[in-house]
């Protein structure tokens, strides 16, 4: 569970673009259609070697095996969907929370303060990114070599703008707090 500080406001939640997720799952659609294509082209001879179907029950044998195959693909699809849905970047008024979901069990949460950001670079990796307007944002933090990457985010310029605005507001708040304490 992500815990927020008292009074912390969520400003933006960024996920990977739906097109990037769709491209990732295209192979599942192909895998779902493959047995049907194999059946059309008579590539089911090996089934006769494993099972012993007769002419009357071959259809039900194929149907049951196809059902088992589709169930497995459906589960894999939902693992990919969970990966997409739970892999998020939460931009609040004080920090960025980077939640990485890798597969079913692995989960990583990184947090960094907005005032620690020193550089942000937009990277459009391919022509699909240009058409559907999505790309990566590489974030460099002060004193760190490791870069944080917001991958395949939709409207990356808007997200970058949002982070910069929040960073500016955060620095202003920090500045006014310091001035107030110095004035004391």
């Amino acid at each position: 569970m992500i815990t927020y500080d008292k009074g912390e406001q969520i400003k933006y939640i960024a996920r990977r673009h739906k097109v990037a997720f769709f491209i990732e799952t295209i192979f599942l659609i192909i895998a779902a259609l493959l047995p049907y294509l194999a059946y059309l082209h008579g590539l089911n001879f090996w089934l006769f070697d494993i099972f012993t179907p007769s002419v009357t029950n071959i259809f039900f044998l194929l149907l049951s095996l196809y059902g088992i195959w589709l169930t497995l693909l459906w589960v894999i699809f939902f693992i990919a969907w969970s990966d997409y849905y739970l892999d998020i970047w939460i931009i609040t008024d004080g920090r960025v929370i980077d939640v990485k979901q890798k597969g079913v069990f692995h989960r990583e949460i990184n947090t960094f303060r907005l005032d620690k950001i020193t550089d942000m670079i937009l990277v459009e990796k391919n022509w699909l990114g240009k058409i559907f307007n999505y790309g990566d944002i590489h974030v460099t933090l002060a004193g760190q070599v490791h870069k944080f990457i917001i991958a395949e985010v939709p409207e990356p310029e808007k997200v970058k703008e949002q982070v910069i605005n929040e960073q500016r507001a955060s620095l202003e708040r920090l500045k006014s707090t310091v001035q107030f304490e110095e004035g004391k």
């Binding site: 039900f60 149907l63 049951s64 059902g67 169930t71 459906w74």
Partner: peptide
């Protein structure tokens, strides 16, 4: 998932009958 698994089980039962 339950519909696909159900149909698959039904197909096995019919296959069994034949």
């Amino acid at each position: 998932a339950i519909i696909i698994l159900g149909f698959s089980a039904l197909a096995i039962l019919i296959y069994n009958a034949h």
